[in-house]
Amino acid sequence: MKTARLFAAAAMLAAAATSFAQGPDAYPSKPVTIIVPFSAGGATDLSARMIATLLSKQLGQPFVVENRAGAGGMIGMNVVARAQPDGYTLGWGGNSPMSVTPHVTRNPPYDPRKAFAPVSLAAISSWTLTSRADLPAKDFGDLVKLAKSSPGKISIASSGNGSAPHLLAEMLKQSAGIDLLHVPYKGEIEGVNAQLGGQVDLMFTSTSAATPQVKAGKLKGYAVTTPKREPALPQFPTMAEIGQPDLTIEIFFGLVAPAGTPTPVLDKLAAAMKVAVADTNYRESMEKAGVTATSSTPEEFAALLARHNERWLNVIKRNNITPE
């Protein structure tokens, strides 16, 4: 019996030693996956891939981006929410799956306020209200007149039911007193392609995706959702300037981990993110895409998520938007 106890004690000590060796100080000791909950392409995916490369160089292990699109970003973020909280499966969280879509979904797979441990912001941007190039409306006033003359016939795309662009569309319909036909797509790129192909008329497109298409004359732009005019598209007024102040909402995206991830791991990742986001090439690439590179502490990111969740919950309640 005494021998058995000694063996058991030795086994416990060995396990503790192994655990210590594989603890936060040794992190990461194997490849890390970053789940991007949207389709490949666009600034969100680009930023994740650039940051993954920079984190790999700093931390000495591969950071591999994996796209898991669908359900307004919830499919990918649910993978993160259910992953082991050890820092080896991370998420590239953004507005829709982190503060919007779960609140307008019946039986959502996770609570965005509880399922994740924020690490750091990576960028902040906006949406631009865009249309197909040949839509006969030169400005927002014309657009409203056109929609009112053809109730329910002007279509507006989104990156999925319950996504932030979908809610923005619903808010626009109510605030401008117009009836638009909502057409959900699997992701933003699919919606933009539908605009370019003339299958849909309008979309709240991320400014990063809208900028090259507008500058090339392939899409029209009407207004941006930032508090101030966007440097990338300074010719377009803000939503407040066109009389739609409730549509003043910024896009954010950044790195999150599953809830319960050890604080030392989060702090190590946050420190690495601060260096990565400060990288000159990353910042210049984001600026060209109409995005502002922005890092944060885990606490600052958590506070931003809390504000966005509260804001969207108020929007959903005020506009009588029910879960689907």
Rank of each mutant, 00 (worst) to 15 (best):
P258Q: 01
Q244A: 06
V64N: 12
P264Y: 01
M286D: 08
T44N: 10
S39K: 12
L247E: 09
K138D: 15
V200T: 13
P97Y: 07
K30S: 10
T280G: 06
H182M: 12
D139N: 15
G177S: 14
L202C: 03
L55P: 02
A17Q: 14
T292M: 11
Q235V: 10
D201S: 14
S56A: 12
V192R: 07
N107W: 02
N95G: 12
K268F: 09
M286S: 01
D25M: 13
G94C: 14
P234M: 00
T3A: 12
Q235P: 14
P37Y: 02
V80M: 04
S175D: 15
G260L: 15
K274M: 03
Q58T: 09
F38H: 07
K2P: 00
N314F: 04
A123F: 09
A8Y: 05
N281D: 14
E190W: 03
I251Q: 04
S131H: 03
V64S: 06
P62Y: 08
T294I: 03
I189K: 15
F252M: 09
A272E: 03
V265M: 06
D246I: 00
D25Q: 15
Y110N: 04
D179C: 10
S163Q: 00
F38A: 14
E324Q: 13
W92V: 08
V119I: 13
R5K: 08
N67Q: 10
H166P: 04
N193I: 05
R68P: 03
E310Y: 13
L219A: 08
A278R: 09
K173W: 10
E324L: 10
V256L: 11
S296H: 09
G187V: 01
G260S: 14
K215E: 13
H166W: 14
G72N: 03
T211E: 03
L167C: 06
A117C: 00
A71P: 09
Q84V: 12
S208Y: 04
A259T: 13
E324M: 00
V200D: 06
T297P: 13
L146N: 00
K114D: 02
Q235D: 15
N67I: 08
P31S: 04
R106W: 00
G141P: 05
L6C: 08
G187M: 00
A303V: 13
V214F: 13
S159N: 11
R49D: 07
K218P: 05
V256C: 05
S206H: 02
